[in-house]
Simulated scan of single mutants.
Amino acid sequence: MGPNATVTGPGRQRSASANGEVTPTAVEPSAVWAEYLAAARQLDGVRRSAAAAAGEQARSAEAAREELTAVRTGLASQQERLRELGVPAISLVPSPPELTEAARSMAGGPAAVLAALRAARGRAEAADAALGTRRRFRPGSWSVWARNLLVYGPLALVVPLIQVAVYAATGIGPATVAALICGLPMPAVAFVAGWVGIGRLFRVGPAERLDRTVRFGALVCLVPAVLVTAGLLLALLPG
């Protein structure tokens, strides 16, 4: 090695003097500091990314737990209504293929579980809306007054309508008088028929009592007959 030769290394530089001694020389501190800052920034970026991922996962897990509670509550209420409509209990239990598909959709972590639960909640709410629309057209889901009126009302109108038709067809005469007389006991007949019909059409549980709204039914059966009878009597009086 010649005089004043320079020997370089990974961390420092060494120079050889004329007498052969090697003396270390300092590396530029700015280069070392820049490398340190770059490594520190990279490490901080990794730490921040890991913290953000962990926080997002924790938030997804918490949201999934809340969503699961809401889904369970909605499904329990929906199952109860479906049982009231006569749906077999076995039809309300998921089948093994459905369980396998659900487990597969939840294998992606809390975010995937949350997405699956939200989709399930949406389907349950859509089913509730469809079920509610259907129940509005089912007399069994109506109030007891409206339900019983559906039975008492038509029966109460049958005889008065016949009396009015006879009067319109024949005018004042024996046929109208006969229809008037025959119609006198018809409100009681209509009430009895309605009372029996309600028991046949609307079923309740063994521990429940069917409300036939007796006074309301009697009033519904009596009012049309009284009005038509009064009208026919007024029509017969001048003659």
Score class of each variant (00 low, 15 high):
R14Y: 14
S141I: 04
A63W: 02
N19K: 09
S49H: 11
L227M: 09
V113P: 00
E98R: 14
L227C: 03
L85N: 14
Q163A: 12
V46A: 12
E56M: 15
V192I: 11
L201C: 06
E101T: 10
A53V: 03
P3A: 14
G173P: 12
V159F: 00
R14E: 13
A5K: 03
G2A: 13
V226E: 07
I181K: 12
F216H: 10
A111P: 02
R104I: 06
T23V: 12
V223A: 15
Q42I: 01
P88F: 06
L184W: 04
G173F: 09
P224L: 03
R59P: 03
I90K: 15
V22H: 04
L92R: 14
L114M: 08
P24G: 04
P97R: 08
P110K: 08
L99R: 15
V226A: 15
V177F: 02
P174N: 08
L114E: 05
P110I: 11
L233S: 04
G109T: 04
R200T: 01
A129L: 13
L180W: 09
L161E: 02
Q79V: 09
A129F: 00
V223Y: 05
A188M: 13
L114Q: 10
A179L: 14
N4S: 11
P224T: 01
P139F: 04
E98T: 13
S141E: 13
L236C: 01
P10C: 03
T170W: 11
L99A: 07
G217Y: 01
R135E: 08
G9P: 01
E67K: 11
G171Q: 05
P29S: 06
S49G: 06
L210F: 04
A146F: 13
Q13V: 15
P97E: 11
A218F: 12
L184Y: 02
A225P: 00
A53M: 06
A40Y: 07
A169R: 13
L155R: 01
E21F: 09
A156R: 02
D211K: 03
A89V: 14
V226L: 15
A235W: 02
G2Q: 10
T25P: 01
R200K: 05
G108F: 04
R136H: 09
A178N: 07
A107P: 02
A64C: 12
V7R: 10
A207I: 12
V87I: 14
P160S: 00
P88M: 14
V7P: 00
R147L: 08
Q78I: 06
R41N: 08
V204G: 08
G20H: 10
A175T: 09
V228W: 00
W145T: 11
W33L: 15
V71W: 06
Y167Q: 14
L201P: 04
A190V: 12
A76R: 07
V166D: 04
R215C: 09
A53H: 05
A58P: 03
M186T: 11
E28T: 05
Y152W: 09
T8V: 12
A52F: 06
L161K: 02
A179S: 15
